[in-house]
Design a protein around this nucleic acid. Structure first.
Length: 258
DNA sequence: ATGCGGGCTTTAACAAGTAA
DNA sequence: TTACTTGTTAAAGCCCGCAT
């Protein structure tokens, strides 16, 4: 369950278990019946408590796949919720919940079936799901209260990091800001999110670095290093290599050649 | 074509910070 | 508080342009 991002979109439905989902700059404490829309480019990472059975359904898809259907006479744009809300959680109850579960179950069954028109039926089911999701988003019931102070604190840490990741960060700053002991802070964050604070910071920085490399081919590794908040090119290179698999310079050259 | 110099990137060693 | 990981620093590679 590592931090990751990918180019496709995701619909994630949580059936049961005990898990937090860290998406971009938000922590979602999941409860059964939660449906999450995800714009794949943002970093996300589930933190699952393995002591409790964990069950979820994921639908991955390329936005481009839906292009032909955009021409069709739907009254709405099916992907609008994904583009507008980015990463969004809806809590489903009663009949809505039963309906979504039934749809997912049918899609699951169709995707396993071979031959016949099951593939066509799957696509239609998928479109149906998207229309329903659109409808659910309109009546946005975004219950996002945290069950305890821990999650609230972790969210505060993330908010702080989002604002300050380009600067020199120290746990002492968080200590002052949140009035909590730094040892306790690190422990709490790991507990809630499954990653350490600096893990989160570096992922954020490296992801930003990749974006810089993609957007501006003229930037040097050192330029990008300072832009995203690393103080030393050496450290930047080491972190980048350990997480991405290649050095920043190799990465940059790949993006230039493609 | 070869050798030199300077800027950028990476590696290695040591100091400081973090998890248990 | 201790063992281990990460941040910092210094220095070694690498690449490219320039002069010989």
């Amino acid at each position: 369950m590592k931090f990751h991002s990918h180019a496709h979109f995701e619909i994630y439905y949580f059936h049961g278990g005990k898990a937090n989902y860290l998406i971009g700059d938000k922590i979602f404490v999941l409860s059964p019946g939660d449906l999450i829309l995800m714009n794949g480019m943002t970093l996300h990472c589930p933190n699952v408590d393995m002591n409790v059975p964990y069950q979820r359904t994921i639908v991955h898809f390329e936005p481009a796949f839906l292009k032909p259907f955009a021409e069709m006479p739907f009254s709405v744009h099916l992907l609008q919720p994904f583009y507008e809300l980015k990463n969004h959680r809806i809590h489903l109850q009663g009949s809505q919940r039963a309906e979504v579960e039934a749809m997912l179950e049918r899609m699951c069954r169709l995707s396993l079936e071979e031959g016949g028109l099951s593939r066509d039926r799957l696509i239609v089911s998928f479109l149906d799901l998207l229309v329903l999701v659109y409808e659910l988003c309109q009546s946005s019931n975004t219950a996002s209260a945290f069950p305890s102070d821990k999650e609230r604190h972790a969210q505060n840490i993330i908010d702080f990091v989002e604002d300050h990741y380009q600067e020199d960060l120290h746990l002492e700053q968080l200590e002052d800001r949140l009035h909590l002991n730094k040892y306790y802070l690190s422990k709490l964050f790991k507990e809630v999110t499954g990653v350490t604070i600096f893990d989160y910071v570096y992922h954020k920085r490296i992801n930003q670095a990749k974006i810089h490399f993609l957007l501006d081919k003229d930037l040097t590794v050192t330029d990008v290093c300072y832009k995203v908040g690393f103080k030393h090119p050496s450290h930047f290179t080491r972190m980048f290599k350990s997480r991405v698999g290649c050095t920043p310079d190799q990465y940059r050259k790949q993006t230039v050649s493609t």
